[in-house]
Amino acid sequence: MTARYSFGGDEHVFVEVSEEMSLGAFFKSLSLCRALKESAIRGVTEICPANASLQVKFNPDVIAPDDLLAEIEALEAATATVDPTLQTRIVEIPVLYDDPWTRETLMRFRERHQYPSGTDLDYAARINGYSDAASFIAAHAGSPWFVSMVGFVAGLPFMYQMVERARQIEVPKYLRPRTDTPKLTVGHGGCFGCIYSVRGAGGYQMFGITPMPIYDPRQEIGYLKELMTFFRPGDIVKFKSVTREGYEEAVRDVEAGRFEPLIRPVTFDLRSFERDPVATNTDIEGVLHGH
């Protein structure tokens, strides 16, 4: 996997680790971002990891573009041999699947959908080989997901399902994007899951909604007081299907300021995952519940 470099105008370097998505490509992009941060190259103002690529913003008055390119290439070579483990955290995200709000929204935009006669869940279940929405939901909530990028809008996580490729959920985006998506919708497009951090336009299929705010520009919610966006690339997410009652209770807890997300530190080892994803996931999920 040799990266491809390109300048994005006179202020950005774009590094494509791989044209296609894989956990390995994400890992390499994240490692390179971390190495870049540590090396604190003068003139570098922002380092943004993405799924299988990264972007470096720089000031060309401080560092010549070709000099920066050479520095990043040297770091790429140096990180190629880095131990593929990641100290990170696992977070449990409660989800009310097939909720009334995304259902109302998807009905409103049905003429923009590939499958106007059913819901987004029905469609995703069918094209991914599941007999019904319930078994699809069990798969969606059944494995952990890697946050492989944060962005598009403030705090929105792109998530990559941690199962072998043959089992990964894949769905096309809407034929034409919606002009509305409820805040905190759990969505999916291509091979990526997401959580919409704000209400707005969107093209991903909609599966449910979480009661857990992930972006708070007013910084009033306890766990978002320090940083207004919750997710960081490298976080691991485990969805937990909740009932309507469980959802309402969590919403009340959020409003009363007593909601605390379940978060545990965890070490992820790419080699062990590649050897045995099922056992590795079981270990990671065990951490969540104190095993």
Binding site: E11, H12, F14, E20, N51, S53, Q55, K57, G190
Partner: peptide, 19 residues
């Protein structure tokens, strides 16, 4: 490419530079 989407203008979601 895996993860990009089927439209020829699609890529695996990446960062967008200003401009």
């Amino acid at each position: 490419p895996f993860g990009a989407g089927s439209d020829p203008s699609n890529i695996v979601d990446s960062c967008y530079p200003y401009g």
